[in-house]
């Protein structure tokens, strides 16, 4: 176990992916605005992407599969960000707020 050769080990990347996932989950729970929650969701997606790329580099018999899957994750994340942001803008126009606690018309 040497600090300077960590870039050649599968476990390093898996731990980084897990940490990104954990930080993103914490943000998703703790954030009080829709935009902050969207940012945290992007963190979770990038944690998943790091895992895919690590398995692709070290274990996969065909090293294109993980890269293509990561490209698809990026496309889906971009589409998700566009849709979510326009929904946020529409909500802001109706409620004059992006606070998650204010949008509660259907709450009993």
């Amino acid at each position: 176990m040497n600090l300077l050769t960590l870039s050649n080990e599968l476990n390093t990347y898996l731990v980084i992916g897990a940490m990104l996932f954990g930080i993103g989950f914490y943000g998703l729970v703790q954030r009080r605005t829709f935009i902050g929650m969207l940012i945290s969701a992007e963190l979770i997606l990038s944690g998943a992407s790091v895992n895919f790329m690590a398995f692709n580099r070290f274990l996969a018999p065909n090293p294109t599969v993980g890269q293509i899957f990561t490209l698809f994750i990026m496309a889906i994340a971009a589409a998700e960000a566009a849709i979510a942001l326009s929904i946020i803008i529409a909500v802001y126009r109706n409620y004059k707020s992006v606070d998650t606690e204010d949008v509660a018309d259907l709450q009993g």
């Binding site: 476990n11 731990v15 897990a18 940490m19 729970v29 703790q30």
Partner: peptide, 16 residues
């Protein structure tokens, strides 16, 4: 939230 996120990250890392 810190507890849940840390627990999730720890579980995933330990699994890996």
């Amino acid at each position: 939230g810190i507890l849940a996120g840390g627990l999730l990250a720890w579980a995933l890392a330990a699994l890996a």
